[in-house]
Design a protein around this nucleic acid. Sequence first.
DNA 1: ACTTTTCGTTCACATAAGTTAACTAATTAC
DNA 2: GTAATTAGTTAACTTATGTGAACGAAAAGT
Lengths: 198, 198
Amino acid sequence: MEPFGTFSNLREHFAETNILNDEDIAAFTSFLTVKRLKKKEFFTVQGELCRSIGFVNSGCLRAFHTDEKGDEFTMYFAFLNWWIGDKTSFYSGTPSRFSIQVLEDCEVFQADKTKWEEALDQIPAFEKWYRIKVRKSYEATQQKIIDTQIESAEEKYLKLLKNSPEIVQRIPQHYIASYLGIKPQSLSRIRKNISLGR
Amino acid sequence: MEPFGTFSNLREHFAETNILNDEDIAAFTSFLTVKRLKKKEFFTVQGELCRSIGFVNSGCLRAFHTDEKGDEFTMYFAFLNWWIGDKTSFYSGTPSRFSIQVLEDCEVFQADKTKWEEALDQIPAFEKWYRIKVRKSYEATQQKIIDTQIESAEEKYLKLLKNSPEIVQRIPQHYIASYLGIKPQSLSRIRKNISLGR
DNA sequence: ACTTTTCGTTCACATAAGTTAACTAATTAC
DNA sequence: GTAATTAGTTAACTTATGTGAACGAAAAGT
């Protein structure tokens, strides 16, 4: 039995799409387990198999790739209502291409591969929801490639300030720098230029 | 009736995955029309609706985004056995985020939205194939974001030489530069450095 | 064939971001 | 509460790529 309100964020998240009805959502939540993670713990470790997909119910995390030189590149920050995990690793059994680490203590609802696939099999509405979700993620990722290429670091930062103030408020600067693909010193310089009116 | 051999490349392309059988493939091809395009013609125009998805049977094309400053960024080159079109525009009815233009005279098999959705509806194996295809495209795009960020232009070019010699052989330098996200002059400089052993 | 346009290269100079290092402020650990 | 660590800033200098211009080679148009 679901304690009252446990999945309220998830329910609202699904409700936005109008694809799953209450029954579908209840069915889906029965496949989930609750996991609590403390700051600095890992949900996924680069190089290891990613065994589950998670829904962030509170706190926040950072997904980042570490290259051979040891430099990190942050792929995304995950807050309330974000889905986390390396789906490539999850599906193909290949090593994760990035780590997902906790920045603020989290509560995550997760499903391992068996449960996830049972849910896809048994809940057609969830299958449909997920298919659309993958398509949208693909579209967003394609757009990100365009943006990454045509925008300067300063343009990216100004856009972040405008479109994702939550990131700028909650996330330490050096992680934002790594999200923008620059060094912390460069972000400092950019912020100074902006504050001086260029 | 299919003229002998018309769809042989497409059949081989599908055969690689073992998802569609001969009957499925025959059913799918019945939804396609053949289109021939001359150099410089457009398959998709940025800002306009992308009305069809195509399979490249011969020739090659270039998908590129043009930003407000008029700078172009090449997203991909499409050769034999590539699928082309802006799926976001195709599905959502939004303006295409990039153009697709012919570099070498092409033969393309195409389906408009009605035909494509009929095929997805009527051929479950095609639906499955396509679902996997979207997932893999998403994965590849995610990997491309990582690569774009962590590699220098020279590293990207050396990787292209190694992994996609066809691109380097068939495609004019200035398009390769725009694919790498740099100016033609910079690519020239990089090539010179490489030839001088740095 | 001849002309025009496009392509690729080179150069000198400009700019954005990386590097190293020093210093202070903030946070965390004990 | 204090020491140790991590985070953010600044500065001087380096490096990669952009910019504008010139030139010859190649390709395309007639």
